[in-house]
């Protein structure tokens, strides 16, 4: 077991925050309150998660574990729609579908064939690995779907001209799908290729601290990196195609009402 961190220890951890606060004071950057609020929120959230996970891990009930995972998925879908400044009511369900399809199935595959678990719903695997997949796909989806719709809105002429050149809707959307995917995968590919040299990822570090052998830790890390990549591609693609069913009218024209903060011209 890793060394315990005492509450005094945590206090010393928080003490480090004096450095950014002093820097902000010196350069007159007005972000102190914002940062402290975020850190306070993070602390409360993690304590609650700790309490709840203790309970979930103790029970290790497949239904409860799945429920917890679906709760994370539904929160990710909410966050994704919210951050893209799109209409929650119409886009929540397709986004939820994208995250479920892109993370849950891949998670099951990893637990079943890669880690080779007897029980694929085992809490210590389902929840942390599910969380890693979700967290990364969420980031990718916010960038990818956001880029897809913003470039469509910016270059709607090009889309319309493709329609008039005889393209079906999916054919006309392809350049935008490519753009969206590229923008979301670039950071992922960058991360993958620098890992092990520039930084040791959180999961691997965690295993090393917990006393696992470095070889076991890297095997997990490799499996996780591959599945993160696959689930990001899947989530972004699904999110684009599922939301596009709703963001376009039957004539294949972008429906402005799904975007919040669209300046009203009339």
């Amino acid at each position: 077991m890793p060394d315990e961190i005492s509450y005094t220890g945590l206090f010393f951890g928080f003490l480090l925050l004096i450095i950014p606060l002093l820097i902000m004071r010196y350069v007159r950057l007005n972000m102190g309150k914002e940062s402290l609020t975020a850190i306070f929120r993070m602390t409360i959230q993690l304590f609650l998660a700790g309490l709840f996970l203790t309970f979930v891990f103790d029970m290790n009930n497949p239904v409860l574990n799945l429920l917890w995972f679906f709760l994370m998925v539904s929160f990710a879908a909410f966050e994704s729609v919210q951050r893209q400044e799109m209409d929650l009511k119409s886009l929540y369900i397709p986004t939820l579908g994208a995250f479920l399809g892109g993370t849950f199935l891949i998670l099951m595959y990893v637990n079943l064939f890669v880690i080779d678990l007897a029980n694929v719903f085992e809490a210590p695997y389902l929840i942390p690995i599910g969380g890693i997949l979700l967290g990364n796909s969420l980031g990718g989806t916010i960038i990818g779907v956001g880029n897809f719709y913003s470039s469509l809105k910016r270059n709607e002429n090009r889309y319309v001209s493709r329609l008039s050149f005889g393209a079906g809707m999916n054919e006309a959307l392809m350049p935008y799908v490519r753009k969206g995917l590229r923008s979301s995968l670039k950071p992922a590919v960058g991360d993958i290729s620098t890992i092990g040299i520039v930084h040791l990822p959180g999961m691997m570090s965690g295993q090393l601290i917990a006393g696992a052998s470095p070889i076991l830790a890297i095997k997990y890390q490799i499996a996780v990196m591959v599945s993160v990549y696959v689930s990001t591609v899947t989530c972004v693609t699904l999110a684009i195609f599922l939301t596009s069913r709703i963001c376009f009218d039957e004539y294949g024209i972008l429906n402005d009402q799904v975007f919040r903060n669209t300046p009203d011209v009339s």
Partner: peptide, 30 residues
């Protein structure tokens, strides 16, 4: 739309090499 040719005033049909743009249009199912 497949029967009507439309040339719009903005001529903003895409980006990239002209040849590739044309080839892509002729790769549409229709």
């Amino acid at each position: 739309r497949k029967e009507i040719a439309y040339v719009s005033q903005d001529t903003d049909i895409g980006e990239g090499i002209v040849k590739d743009l044309i080839n892509e249009i002729f790769s549409f199912d229709h």
